[in-house]
Design a protein around this nucleic acid. Structure first.
Lengths: 164, 164
DNA sequence: CTAGTGTTGTCAAGCGTTCAACTATTCCAG
DNA sequence: CTGGAATAGTTGAACGCTTGACAACACTAG
């Protein structure tokens, strides 16, 4: 074995990692739980509704919606099916590409989003913005950007890797 | 309506929030995916094995294990049942409290953990430590601590709230 | 001893996610 | 125009997680 062994984490690194992962796991769970409790939807659904509400005509192709939500087509397909059952989203055939489906936010869906938003925003304030100083928020921007740079460079989320 | 309306997020805040949530969702998913792919276990299971490996006699009461993993008893109960199926953990009756169950890491479980650790550590380095500067890592410590302070103060994870 | 109360852990049902086919359509080469 | 490859999206099964109900047990008071 020439392998010098894995580059183990130092105690400091170990602490940094554990604190960070615990903090963000908790934060994501807290935000998700609030939405689930007060509005009956998981964070993933809320994000889908937001993406649609920001799109022209409140409409997006399924694939675009999946990309915007950084999730898989299958997941979005199932999710939209459930949102459709609730009357929050409608699916239509795409006029230009007959393979395509267009998901559209209904008025009812827009109302549901509007109703959920204030509580959600308040929760985000409580767990993030009220917890951190302006200085820390600036620092967080840099950290997020650095991680996202890794994410973009990594093959982890490459669904259709073009480098084949 | 006297309500001045929710304290909406400013564009800057909105950006901070979205970047952060996206970055950490990705990071957690990337770490989980690596473990699942290379060692056939989700991050939650890995964390349980780590907690056990750090405990005296590689053993913990189920409740202690749940607290150490910051998850619910039910979740831990299910997880340990599956780990037991794989032969990584054994459950025994507690000699001093006959209600209790003690989860013990088996030798096989310790081996599985040892086999999984190097790849996991390497992945953590890639997505976190290699992405951030030493300065940013220090900043992250402060941010994590601030969020955890909120977590501790919040009733979100209070299973048995003593303030009743 | 017996009843009441709180704790410990498990079990069953329902929901959401992922993975692996599968259908339908478009694109492109010959 | 035809056949094959790529693309768009859906579907069903298996899996893990969460919730609420529940059984077993410990502790305390009468």
């Amino acid at each position: 074995m020439k392998d010098p062994g894995p580059r183990w984490l130092s105690p400091d690194e170990q602490s940094t990692w554990r604190e960070a992962i615990e903090a963000w796991q908790w934060l994501l769970a807290a935000v998700d739980a609030q939405l689930q409790r007060d509005s009956g939807m998981p964070l993933a659904y809320y994000e889908i509704l937001v993406r649609l509400s920001e799109a022209p005509d409140h409409s997006l192709r399924m694939t675009q919606l999946a990309e915007a939500s950084s999730s898989s087509k299958s997941r979005v397909s199932h999710a939209v099916a459930r949102l459709e059952e609730r009357g929050w989203v409608r699916r239509m055939d795409c006029p230009t590409d007959r393979r395509g489906q267009i998901a559209t936010l209904t008025d009812q869906g827009f109302d549901a989003l509007s109703a959920a938003a204030p509580g959600h925003v308040e929760q985000v304030r409580q767990v993030l913005f009220d917890a951190l100083t302006p200085e820390q928020l600036r620092q967080l921007d840099g950290i997020s950007a650095a991680i996202q740079a890794k994410a973009a460079a990594s093959p982890t989320d490459a669904e259709g890797c073009p480098a084949a």
